[in-house]
């Protein structure tokens, strides 16, 4: 279930995140894409990314060039679920100026999202080893955030 009505998380830029974090798993129900970007931008060693839930909508003008401050390695596994299989999330990731190098992409969505997914997969064409693309009727997952260090 989402956290509708709950206040958004405070600005992630205030967080002190270890630079050695390599994996980020987050349910986006209580954050905006800008806040999500801010978290990711603080993690230069980020290899594995798992996003689920539905990000809080924001003014679309704030999404222009949203991914240009990303600096993760993005060389591991990407997992997208629920409404994170969306053009705006894909644009965020594709905005990374150093490019995506995921070796595994695992997409599970509730309706066909081929266009953004195909763009995302194409961006990893030289590194991708495994692709999973599943269309299911599964519900949303619960709020959670996990960080992992190597």
């Amino acid at each position: 279930m989402g956290l509708e009505g709950a206040p958004p998380l405070r600005t992630p830029s205030l967080w002190k995140l270890p630079q050695t974090i390599t994996s980020l798993t987050i349910n986006t129900d209580a954050v905006t894409l800008v806040q999500l970007r801010d978290v990711m931008a603080h993690l230069p060693s980020l290899d594995n990314l798992s996003l689920s839930g539905s990000p809080i909508p924001v003014d679309r003008s704030t999404l222009s060039g949203i991914g240009t401050t990303l600096r993760g390695r993005f060389g591991g596994k990407l997992q997208l679920r629920d409404n994170c299989v969306h053009k705006d999330v894909v644009d965020l990731l594709l905005g990374d100026p150093t490019g995506l190098r995921f070796t595994e992409v695992d997409i599970c969505c509730r309706q066909e999202c081929l266009l953004p997914t195909a763009r995302l997969v194409q961006a990893c064409d030289k590194t991708l080893v495994k692709l999973s693309y599943m269309i299911t009727s599964h519900g949303k997952s619960h709020f959670s955030i996990q960080l992992a260090e190597s």
């Binding site: 030289k126 991708l128 495994k130 693309y133 269309i135």
Partner: peptide, 12 residues
């Protein structure tokens, strides 16, 4: 996709 080893597609 020169390194591609596995493709899983599912439609439930």
């Amino acid at each position: 996709f020169p390194n591609l080893q596995e493709v899983d597609f599912g439609v439930h």
